[in-house]
Nucleic acid binder design. Structure first.
Lengths: 195, 195
DNA sequence: AGTTTAATGGCACGTCATGTCATCACAGTG
DNA sequence: CACTGTGATGACATGACGTGCCATTAAACT
């Protein structure tokens, strides 16, 4: 019996996903996941810091991807235009080709408050990496913060619309639509002059 | 020995806050909190769903306050102007008079990832109640979502600036400043026309 | 073949959180 | 004053989560 089955982490992920879908997240125990993957509980916690994290494995790549993209963009591109032009392509490359998987995951996450909290945390991590990218480009912190928030809001909203849509809609289209809606709101923000 | 000390919940809150500041959140156990409050562990979990929640007690009032404010505002006021005009006063009444307490709490929250996650969850709850308020006013869901996000982003940023500031700065001033910064960015969003 | 490295197994342990039942304080009633 | 009902608390058992520690084994390296 081979002890080191290739891809223990993958095994655990698949086992966990299957069990979560079958019997729910809260009703699934870590020993159950480990047993289905042919491993032990202790090994599970070596690959994932906690039971929730197994649903977010691979998301470490997202901040890295953000850093690369922002470093590649010419320094003279200002923050808002950078987001407006890069967010669509970025979303498409990172999430565009796995709508089904993201749908299954979202279905599970929506059933558990702890998982929703973790998802918010992941978005906050993404936001932080965007802020960091802007600061490294010389943007002041307040602007970096607000533009990163803008990016995360638009991305989240577009992802929700995309996952909720039925036809073969491209994610970049959803991003464009949300950006258009945001543009309309932005004009109202301007008109309302402050005292 | 009186068994029903008045205000068991308050006792637990104060004991928890003190212990968290003394030895940290993770290093404090629920039995310790209960013991200092003169109660048992089981009683702690009757008043708070989990160990983190003790730091967020009283925040249930915030969504209620949002509902009231949005219901009182005349129906003809459009979403964006509503936020622009009401957010400052709202923040002032809800948070304005307890900067010190919020500072202590923030100091604790910043040390623990689980607490940060819970704080994000609370902001998401606030966001949801704003969305609900807009939908009840007849706003379409996408607009309601985006404007609620705008409100939460501005509020969070302003709160951060306010808690970080040294002098006797009013929270409404911080909100106004963040709104001004956002207005500048909004103009850039408009200029950048989509394809 | 021997050595080193890294992943895993196995066990103990503390904490968190919940279900269950007994117990006690207090209010109301006669 | 005695009786009763309601609600908060105490006390105990239980299960799951997550971590520290060390032995074990596979695979790579020499």
């Amino acid at each position: 019996m081979a002890r080191w089955q290739a891809g223990a982490q993958d095994q655990l992920e698949q086992a966990a996903l299957a069990l979560f879908l079958e019997q729910g997240f809260a009703e699934t125990t870590v020993p159950q996941i480990a047993a289905r993957a042919g491993l032990t509980t202790r090994t599970f916690f070596r690959h994932f810091t906690d039971k929730r994290e197994v649903l977010f494995a691979g998301d470490e790549a997202v901040p890295t991807s953000v850093q690369q993209l922002m470093a590649q963009t010419p320094p003279e591109v200002r923050p808002v235009p950078l987001i407006l032009t890069q967010l669509g392509p970025f979303a498409e490359t990172v999430f565009g080709d796995r709508r089904d998987m993201l749908r299954r995951r979202h279905q599970i996450i929506s059933t558990d408050q702890g998982l929703r909290e973790r998802e918010l945390q992941k978005m906050a991590t993404l936001r932080a990496s965007i802020v960091d990218g802007f600061v490294q480009r010389g943007t002041d912190k307040l602007t970096a913060s607000l533009v990163a928030d803008l990016a995360v809001v638009v991305l989240s909203t577009a992802l929700a619309q995309w996952l909720d849509s039925v036809g073969p809609m491209p994610l970049s289209t959803a991003v464009a639509e949300v950006l258009a809606a945001f543009r309309r709101l932005a004009s109202e923000v301007e008109l309302q002059a402050g005292p």
